[in-house]
Design a protein around this nucleic acid. Sequence first.
RNA 1: CGGGGUGUGGCGCAGUUGGUAGCGCGCGACGUUUGGGACGUCGAUGCCGCAGGUUCGAAUCCUGUCACUCCGACCA
Length: 474
Amino acid sequence: MVEQITSMDVDFAQWYTDVVKKAELMDYSSVKGCMIFRPYGYAIWENIQRDLDARFKACGHENVYMPMFIPESLLTKEKDHVEGFAPECAWVTVGGENKLTERLAVRPTSETLFCEHFRNVIQSYRDLPKLYNQWCSVVRWEKTTRPFLRTSEFLWQEGHTMHETEEEAREETLRMLKVYEDFYLESLAIPAVTGQKTPKEKFAGAEATYTIEPMMHNGVALQGGTSHYFGDGFAKAFDITFTGRDNQVRYPHQTSWGVSTRMIGAIIMTHGDDSGLILPPAIAPIQAVIIPIAQHKEGVLDKAGELYDRLKAAGLRVKLDDSDQSSGWKFSQYEMKGVPVRLEIGPKDMENNSCVLVSRVTREKKFVSLDNLETEVKAMLAQVHDELVARAQKNREEKTNDAHTREEFLDIAENKPGFIRAMWCGDAACEDQLKDETGGVKSRCIPFVEDHLSDVCVCCGKPAKHMVVWGRQY
RNA sequence: CGGGGUGUGGCGCAGUUGGUAGCGCGCGACGUUUGGGACGUCGAUGCCGCAGGUUCGAAUCCUGUCACUCCGACCA
């Protein structure tokens, strides 16, 4: 008997920890907050990288690599930025045997390094735009950590772009948020709320921060990715200038945007169930697993191997498990690991020139003819994707409530996990007050699509400027 | 960073008033099984988180430290 995972309704946090361990996604290391990506977990990241990288390149971005060390003097050039990040930096003070004359931060993010470089390579409007992206890891000395969701070191991509005009940079900021939104929906099967962060919640040094906010199964939000418009603040701090078309010296306008391995946490907590992980087909390391039944019987393994070759030739990521574990054990194992489609092939199927397909989401068994195997498997993968989207959508809708008064807001915050939609006056004091009174509910974003719920702020009663989506977050 | 919990074989755990470590699962071999987590026989695996201390003797008592976990605070 394999240990059961804790039911998500009993203890969601424990369920999450059980799943990441038992699906063999990660292991703990001896350094606080640093995790080991095991092959299956890293394969998910590789698929995410491949998919996103193609999307970035389709809009003209080029990959670069910056150093992992940032001299303190460089990090501190932009005031808001250093205030935001200095508290969670790891510092290198010794090189070999010698104490360094200037300490080096292990990058918590690379804006400053990109800026230093941009200063050297941007001279003229002809050098713009610069559309760069970097895949790397960053370090932030977090106080509490959780696998994938918040780790001291994490893998991510950070895009950094420089533009001739404000308009162009603002367009880029929103374009990349849309890339994230599409990726979440099309590849991760996660429908998410997108919008703008309030000034209180925006990135250190940014003029505007946009965010994608998926809701986890238990109603808690996760900041799933951000895209920032910097204006020319960093350009001025780093003295990055170019000669414009009008022959005047100008400052370029900048953006940055990033998503991280935290997305793997989002996948787990959005789609998983009490049997374990459920992976969206687009990024699943194994899209279909073939389980031979009574594999000792003549011809079964040959047939299974034949089906494997066919599915592989059809471009699917497929695995044949011919180990001598019992088939029941295999069923449970691949459910735990979230493989979207299971294919069973045994003597009875062979007599009928058929096999059995089982959906990880519904566990529906479908007997299909081997004649159109490829089509059937692809159809079931598409169906799994659609069902995951629909389920996540339904969960989010059920766990989103509107509040018209402060009493109503506090009542929902206390009794109904999930998002709260409510009007806001624009004052950070109201955000602080609601957070205090609810014990942690914060503004997620001002969504791009707002409804007019009332004329006044849910907190102070002054005229409302925006509808805000509120919620607790990981 | 504060409060609680936990560190014993790969995993889950037991270990009495201190006497030198055990169970289940898993792992290996062989045989029987095989359409939802199979069974039998034999076998291997321990710096008792780490470092000090007390003691003739420490998994056990004391001090320190590290990690994990939960709840807060903090956190683009």
